[in-house]
Design a protein around this nucleic acid. Structure first.
Lengths: 145, 145
DNA sequence: GTGAGAATGACAACTAAGGTGTCATATCGC
DNA sequence: GCGATATGACACCTTAGTTGTCATTCTCAC
């Protein structure tokens, strides 16, 4: 069993690299770096959130997310909105332009993924999500900043 | 369904980063960089193989694997053995020292993974492996070198 | 065989993802 | 109000990983 989990990790590396490479190949169309793309993606899925929150969500350093966010802001892809819960740390939100950009990227990726759908059952993908989430939680303590 | 697959990719990023960080935390004990560790791990699981083969197996550039291999060789962790199939490109094999080093690392990691075992069924992990393998194959074309 | 083309290894830049360290300022809990 | 903590800005750094070039060696087709 533990062996099997080790295999999972052995797949995660190559998969992540290939995925990154794919993103890099496609995203230049919109001019998004991998980091900016990650920020937009988070905001798209989880709604407006603060920079430190994003860092924790993706296991990235606060400062890295900050830079990516500033970059996205300079490009007009995101904007700040006052944070009721914390006056200093404003919420970051997608602009219309940002949403359009990330939606375009996601749409292209979904088109690729659709080829795979047929070979896999919904149950398998769910199981996969459960396993990965569990592993992620196991490593929760290994965070930075 | 396609949505679910997107979620898988969204987990792969953070998981890979945390795993890398964990490896970095632990491996320094043996003095292994992430790259060298990957090479040793491959040789451990798949037996002796050539540098280009390793590159393809892990979706890494041939040259990067070459450097890591040279590094490992300089440390006495791997050695070359004549390749019957190809006289120029010799097989790379773990030395006793190399095997000891990677075994120690793996053992430590397995100890961590054992905590998770209880929460997951074998079937789920198998499904996860199937899904990840399928996705990996989908991106087979995205390789370098 | 032999010659063309591919595969390998060495070496040297180069890129970019991502982290670290520090500082000023602002926030929040007590 | 005060101390601890969180945030953001700025600058620097590390290193995983790629790209390019070149010489050599292999392979394979003829």
């Amino acid at each position: 069993m533990t062996d099997r989990l080790t295999e999972v990790f052995d797949l995660v590396g190559p998969l992540h690299r290939r995925a990154q490479r794919k993103v890099e190949q496609d995203a230049p169309i919109e001019g998004l770096s991998v980091g900016v793309r990650a920020v937009l993606n988070m905001l798209r899925d989880l709604g407006p959130m603060t920079v430190p929150q994003m860092g924790r969500a993706q296991a990235l350093s606060r400062q890295f997310v900050q830079r990516m966010t500033n970059d996205a802001m300079a490009r007009g892809l995101v904007e700040t909105v006052p944070n009721p819960a914390h006056k200093r740390s404003s919420l970051i939100r997608l602009t219309g332009k940002g949403r359009a950009a990330i939606d375009a990227v996601i749409a292209r990726e979904r088109a690729v993924l659709r080829q795979v759908g047929a070979d896999l059952t919904e149950a398998e993908v769910d199981a996969c999500l459960r396993v990965l989430s569990r592993l992620l939680r196991l490593l929760d303590d290994v965070d930075v900043d």
